[in-house]
């Protein structure tokens, strides 16, 4: 059942080459081949958003994308987003606001939030809409919306 393909792509700012099985999805590749376990798998049918990563800057279900499809792309996972410091304010706000409990959905939520806040200052309703592709079973979402709203306000100056 193996059908290997060579891929080369940018992962968290560094180039990666690998031979991957055609059927291997990106989430499994990140988690089990590259040991980047911050990307989580919740449903493997593209609903829950726990596996969201950024592919060429867009939040993407890594369970619905095959590893071969990232050939030539820029992929950012929670590990890279953390190391670069680009979502440090979001991470600090999530911690301060207790916008996570079990933390399983959080890396995916942060990928969505990172994309949402790129150049935008969304309203509370827009934040809720954007988060509709990220299931959270613990928080009830209120604290997550608060945390993102706070960061949106700070990034665009002034109070949220």
């Amino acid at each position: 059942m193996t059908d290997l393909h060579s891929i080369a792509f940018m992962l968290n700012g560094k180039s990666v080459t690998a031979d991957v099985d055609a059927r291997l999805h990106l989430a499994d590749f990140l988690r089990h081949t590259l040991h980047l376990t911050g990307t989580h798998i919740g449903c493997e049918h593209g609903v829950c958003g726990a596996c969201n990563v950024l592919v060429d800057g867009r939040s993407t279900r890594s369970c619905l994308m095959l590893a071969v499809q990232v050939d030539g792309a820029h992929v950012e996972t929670i590990e890279g987003l953390t190391a670069s410091g680009q979502i440090a304010d979001l991470q600090a706000a999530f911690t301060a606001r207790n916008a996570l409990q079990c933390g399983y959905c959080t890396p995916g939520v942060l990928a969505t939030a990172a994309e949402l806040l790129t150049g935008n200052k969304p309203t509370r309703d827009e934040i809720r809409d954007a988060l509709s592709g990220n299931y959270c079973r613990c928080t009830g979402y209120h604290a997550i919306v608060d945390a993102i709203e706070t960061v949106a306000g700070k990034r665009h100056g002034g109070a949220p």
Partner: peptide, 13 residues
């Protein structure tokens, strides 16, 4: 805030 939260938001669960 929870101490664990800082680890979880960094994908270090």
């Amino acid at each position: 805030p929870r101490r664990t939260a800082a680890r979880l938001v960094a994908g270090k669960g």
